[in-house]
Nucleic acid binder design. Structure first.
Lengths: 222, 222
DNA sequence: ATTTACAAACCAAGCGCTTGCTTGGTAATG
DNA sequence: CATTACCAAGCAAGCGCTTGGTTTGTAAAT
């Protein structure tokens, strides 16, 4: 399978990127009060939905009184927004590293798919799910604000897809292809359970590539 | 449920199927009080989400007092469930007709994709979006109940995909392919706006087929 | 080393409002 | 003349958030 991993040392570690972002104050340290709060919020928002999660639920999960939450955030919505903003920041950095780690277009695409699948189904999965499925719960002003951040992220995808299209390796329209991929990949959060079925993230990536007509015949995984 | 109805005139009309289901009491007549209520509920649930929609909102949209809702449904959740159940019933029937209207595997797949895109983005779109994105708001008992109905629907897809795989026209795993398609197609509800961009449902179907490597080079739609 | 000063982090209590839903009665329908 | 459809009013519970006061961490001043 075409995946060289550490080629010289181009592949930057996930955790290294994370540390750098914490240092720059772009995401909160999960050890800090704010960081723990956001992590719990992400889990709760994904499991029960933003609206069904009360500030009392969240406070109990963190181990403080409900009123004390408002020392850290002014409103409940601000918590949701913070989860989304920090998630986008982290993932943009991760995806950027993923693209830059490869040279060929097909490899870049694979790296992007693999990275997004990891974002969705890995440690940041809760937050990613919130980002995708709790969109409507943001106020309109917050929505446009978050949307601006997403554009950077989306540009990464479009650049790679455009290259593939020019090279004749992609038939469909670039924007539509990206949107289809967004849907398909984010939907995995509802069904992909690595512990059962024995399908790894790499295996899943292979399947997506196979569906798009890349990488020849990939056999059945089961 | 399996009624093939008249299959000389192969393409059964959407509206004919609808009428038949109403007659069998499997979905409510949109002219009835219950039917209007469910239609309004679907719209509101999609636009604002189930939790953000209050019984007062819903009652106002229908033009009655909030308490009067509970003459038709015992709880708010029962309304959500009814929207979902009736949507699945209708769409299962529509999809069944779509598959039976074609003979070749590729054509069957195209018909399924086209039909699901229409379900999602057409008149039943509100209800479909609710079905997909308000899943968590159902109680667990209701979830399993609705899930059983979905299985029939899903079987239609899997049968066609299996045939394609046997014929060597599909590389990826059948179950995974279906799940990817579910995500990709249902996600269209968030971005596909037929009025702008000039992309028709048929055009969109072509794009999906092109992404899967079918139907040769489909040019850019824009 | 102990005191002083001060802000950040948190608690206990509860306010004002909205929520889903109930109740007892009235109007329409067939 | 009973059944169905609705209204007017409101209840109990839960909601996001505020308030006033107490603890805790930190660092300079004594």
């Amino acid at each position: 399978m075409g995946q060289p991993s550490l080629q010289l040392d181009i592949h930057v570690k996930h955790s290294d990127i994370f540390q750098a972002l914490i240092k720059d104050q772009l995401v909160s340290d999960p050890a800090s009060a704010r960081g723990r709060l956001l992590a719990e919020a992400a889990t709760l928002f994904r499991d029960k939905g933003y609206e069904r999660t009360t500030v009392r639920d969240l406070a109990a999960a963190v181990g403080i009184q409900s009123g004390s939450l408002f020392h850290h955030f002014r409103t409940k919505e601000e918590i949701l927004k913070a989860v989304m903003v920090e998630t986008i920041r982290l993932n943009t950095a991760v995806m950027q590293a993923a693209v830059e780690g490869e040279t060929e277009s097909e490899a870049k695409l694979r790296a992007l798919i693999r990275a997004e699948l990891e974002s969705i189904n890995g440690k940041t999965g809760e937050a990613m799910a919130v980002l995708v499925y709790e969109w409507r719960s943001l106020s309109e002003v917050s929505q446009t604000e978050v949307l601006a951040l997403r554009d950077v992220y989306e540009e990464l995808w479009l650049t790679v897809l455009k290259r593939l299209k020019n090279e004749g390796q992609l038939n469909a329209d670039v924007f539509i292809a990206r949107r289809m991929l967004t849907g398909a990949l984010s939907w995995t959060v509802t069904w992909y359970k690595p512990e059962r079925g024995g399908l790894t993230l790499d295996g899943l990536t292979d399947q997506v590539m196979a569906l798009l007509g890349f990488g020849g015949a990939a056999g059945a995984p089961e």
